[in-house]
C-alpha cells in the first residue's frame, strides 16, 4: 500500500484512478509521510464517490503543496505561500457546488498565512483543509517553524528554539471551524474516516496530521535520518484525548493531543449564509 510515487511502472490503483500519471513519481523525499496522507485522502475521496468533475485540489506553498500540486486529475489551484485559504475562499464562493480539498503546511498555514487561516475558520468556509505538520520548514531546508518544539535545533535556531509551538487545532476550534481533528500519519484508519467526516461536514473541516520529515526534522532536530525514529518521536510525543485525561499537567507538557476536538455540523458558514442572504437581496 505504500507504493504511491515509487518509480515502479505499476501504480497503485488509487493513483491510477485519481492522479496524473505524467506527474509521477512525485518529488517527496524517501521516508516522507506526505504520500501516506495522500493515500488516506484518495481513499476518502474514493469511498465518498467524489469525482474529478466536482472536486478541486487547492494548495499553498511548502512540501505539502509542492508534492501534491497539479497531481489531481481534475482542476488544481495552487496559491502563493500562505494564501491557500484566501484562494479557497474565492474559489468556493464562485463555485459553491464544488468540493475543495485543500493542502497546507505548518509554515503556510501557521505563519505566513495565519491570518487567512483564522478568518477562514471564522467564516467557517465549507472546504476540507489538511494541515501537514512536520514541525519544520522542509522545502527550504530545515528552518524553524511555528510548530517546532521548544529547544529544537534547526538551521535558523542553531542554539535551540526558545519559542512555544502553535497549537493550530485549538486556534481552529476557537475561531469557529465546524470540524477539527488531529491525527498521526500512522493513524491510517482514523485519519481516513476523519477525512470522510470532514468532507461531509458543512463548514470548515480542519484536519491536522503529524507526519515525519526525516530529511530535515530528523536530521536537525532528532539527529537521525531514519523515518522510523521520527515516527517513534511523534508516537512518544502524542497522546489520545482519553489517555490525556489520566495524565497530569506536567506529564502532558510538550505532547500533542490526538483525536477529534470538535464536530458541530449545525454551525452554518459563509457559503450557506450567502446563498440564504441572496434569496432576500437579489433583485435581478
Amino acid at each position: 500500500m505504500s507504493t504511491v510515487g515509487e518509480t515502479s511502472n505499476v501504480l497503485h490503483p488509487l493513483v491510477e484512478k485519481y492522479l496524473r500519471k505524467e506527474r509521477m513519481p512525485h518529488m517527496a523525499c524517501s521516508g516522507c509521510g506526505i504520500g501516506q496522507v495522500v493515500h488516506s485522502v484518495l481513499l476518502a475521496i474514493d469511498e465518498l464517490g467524489l469525482t474529478p468533475k466536482d472536486t478541486v485540489w487547492v494548495q499553498g506553498v511548502g512540501c505539502s503543496s509542492r508534492i501534491t500540486y497539479s497531481t489531481w486529475v481534475g482542476d488544481n489551484v495552487d496559491a502563493h505561500h500562505g494564501r491557500m485559504f484566501a484562494v479557497a475562499t474565492g474559489l468556493k464562493m464562485a463555485r459553491p457546488d464544488m468540493n475543495f480539498i485543500c493542502f497546507t503546511g505548518d509554515g503556510d498555514c501557521g505563519a505566513i498565512g495565519g491570518n487567512h487561516f483564522i478568518h477562514a475558520c471564522r467564516r467557517n468556509l465549507d472546504v476540507t483543509a489538511i494541515l501537514f505538520n512536520n514541525g519544520i520548514y522542509g522545502m527550504t531546508g530545515g528552518q524553524v517553524a511555528p510548530t517546532s518544539p521548544v529547544g529544537a535545533v534547526t538551521t535558523t535556531t542553531p542554539y535551540g528554539n526558545i519559542e512555544d509551538p502553535f497549537d493550530m487545532c485549538q486556534m481552529a476550534v476557537a475561531a469557529g471551524a465546524s470540524y477539527v481533528a488531529r491525527w498521526r500519519v500512522t493513524d491510517f484508519k482514523a485519519l481516513t474516516n476523519s477525512l470522510k467526516k470532514g468532507i461531509q461536514t458543512k463548514g470548515l473541516a480542519f484536519i491536522e496530521v503529524l507526519l515525519q520529515c526525516p530529511t530535515n526534522f530528523g536530521r536537525y532536530v532528532l539527529k537521525t535520518s531514519n523515518p522510523q525514529d521520527v515516527l517513534k518521536w511523534i508516537k512518544d510525543h502524542s497522546v489520545s484525548q482519553k489517555e490525556a485525561e489520566k495524565l497530569s499537567k506536567e506529564e502532558l507538557a510538550g505532547k500533542y493531543l490526538i483525536g477529534e476536538f470538535v464536530h458541530r455540523p449545525e454551525r452554518t458558514g459563509i457559503v450557506e449564509r450567502y446563498q440564504e442572504f441572496l434569496k432576500t437581496y437579489q433583485k435581478y
Binding site: 489551484v77 496559491a79 502563493h80 500562505g82 494564501r83 485559504f85 484566501a86 484562494v87 479557497a88 475562499t89 474565492g90 474559489l91 464562493m93 464562485a94 463555485r95 491570518n115 487567512h116 478568518h119
Partner: peptide
C-alpha cells in the same frame, strides 16, 4: 492580500 487572492481565485472559478 486576501482580497486580491480571492479575486484571482473567483475569476478562476468563473466570475
Amino acid at each position: 492580500l486576501a482580497s486580491i487572492h480571492a479575486v484571482g481565485a473567483a475569476s478562476v472559478g468563473g466570475l
